[in-house]
Design a binder for these strands. Sequence first.
DNA 1: GCCGTTTTCGGCCCGACTGTTTTCAGTCG
Length: 576
Amino acid sequence: MAAAKDPSNAAIAELLDELGDLYELEGAVVHRVLAYRNAAKAIRDAPRSVAAMTREGRVTELPGVGKTLEEKLTALVETGEIPALEKLRSRVPAGLVVITRLPGLGPKRARKLHDALGVDGPQALRAAIEQHRVRDLAGFGAKSEERLLAALDAAGDAVDGPKREILSRALAVGEALVAELRAHPSSDRVELAGSARRWADSVKDLDIIATADDPQALIDAFAASDLIAEISRSGVAGAHAIAQSGIAIDLRVVAPDQFGNLLQHFTGSKAHNVAIREAAVRRGLHVSEYGILDDETGQSERFATEEEVYARLGLPWIPPELREDRGELQLTEVPPLIEQADLRGDLHMHTTASDGRASVREMAQAARALGLDYVAITDHSASHGFGDAVSPDRLRELIAEVRAVDDELDGITVLAGSEVNIGVDGSLDYDDELLAELDWIVASVHTAFTSDPTARIVAACEHPLVDVIGHPTGRKLEERFAYDLDVDAAIAAALRTGTFLEINGSPRRRDLDDVHARAARDAGVLLTIDSDAHGPEALANTRWGVATARRAWLSAADVANTRPWEELRKLRKGAR
DNA sequence: GCCGTTTTCGGCCCGACTGTTTTCAGTCG
């Protein structure tokens, strides 16, 4: 083991992206820059620790990582830094990378501003514009100054590109808008495309692709929707708008005979499309959003459906959730993916006994209304400290209440559980005798994130009564990164001990994420999909968990709570 | 910088828009 802490895959990917940015500013050929970005993506998508793979001499197994990058990664793992990156950082001002994020300003022109005017960041750029020194540069003009100044004003202090929005908020707008457009008399097909259709964790904007008898009427209806705050661009082919919520929305109205091409193109991902096009070129086909050009015939073919687009390329129709260039183009047959209706139970939720908003009975009734066969009530344990900590005595009362509700309600099985806090030493809050009275035990890290979460989670897996690790990495989108968990080690411990790992359905968590859930499944670990609901309406949060599971290529059999409770209880490690 | 059912060298997806241009480079998605 190395003495220093290994950098995470996300941290390594960030360094390679930075290398790409800096080489680009130095004028490197685009394909060299692209090579760094491709490698960064491959490392982000890698299920295992790339630092560990580097040490084992296996890092070139990743697509896009060759000899040169292996050397750089080896240096990083052994010394904690990449010499080439350190040199570049000393040569290229950090502010130069920052101004390339301004719309309309890329690496080439940023470099020119630096070399000719000494511009090294946003402040220097503003000064140069105000002194009208930019307009005299070749390739720049008065219009450039105007637009760059506007971009600087719009960016304010944070020149940081557009913010991403978590999917639940974006879809609330996107699904409502699609429903409105579908209800319009002149609309024919209306589909959400982009990363929202792929059910990504978060999205930058929304893309809607439509066909209509009267395109202008549909575009007018779009512009007039209550959900739209302003229209920034509008024409016969579509419109670009900002929703009341602040998210950007692009509507494209297209001819019916190329709806399939457009929908496929705008669903992405970019990496998926690039991979498709590269493979197509080898077969003499050129794919664009408008059609597929066949070298042999010189004809461009348009398709009304995505199924036809994929079929023309010799591929099965690939579900949007899989379109990330993570091996889906090698599929001859698409695996059956889990669906919402496959879930039979929900094994993680809270009531007023801890920090929930509803009673045991209300939660059970709401779950029954959603069609679930069983639920586990899993309030926080004694040391969680939300003010409503469930003491051992209180837990005994709660168990009795759950049993009473279970007896009383027909059509749903209500299980007594707990979300037990994993202490800094890996111990649990309740003694084993009390824990043994429970039907279901979720163990989670809620405190002291810097105190060796890996060792604590491994210890929890080794506890004979723990069924599942809740939200294993602790990430919260828009709020905080995952704590420093060695996911490889957690998966190995779960496999060894027969512990399940959770895909938490809270839209801010979705934890495990798609990459790690896929790694867990591939290792042979069973997953659960839970709502972590704190009120009846949040039981529907399992949809985000199902989305993550689909993005992880999971089928129903890979998820423990697609089974009837009587079958699942026999899979608990305590029952075996 | 990566990679190989035409290649260990010479390629590496596709098209639109913009502003500064007499035919295009840079930027973006």
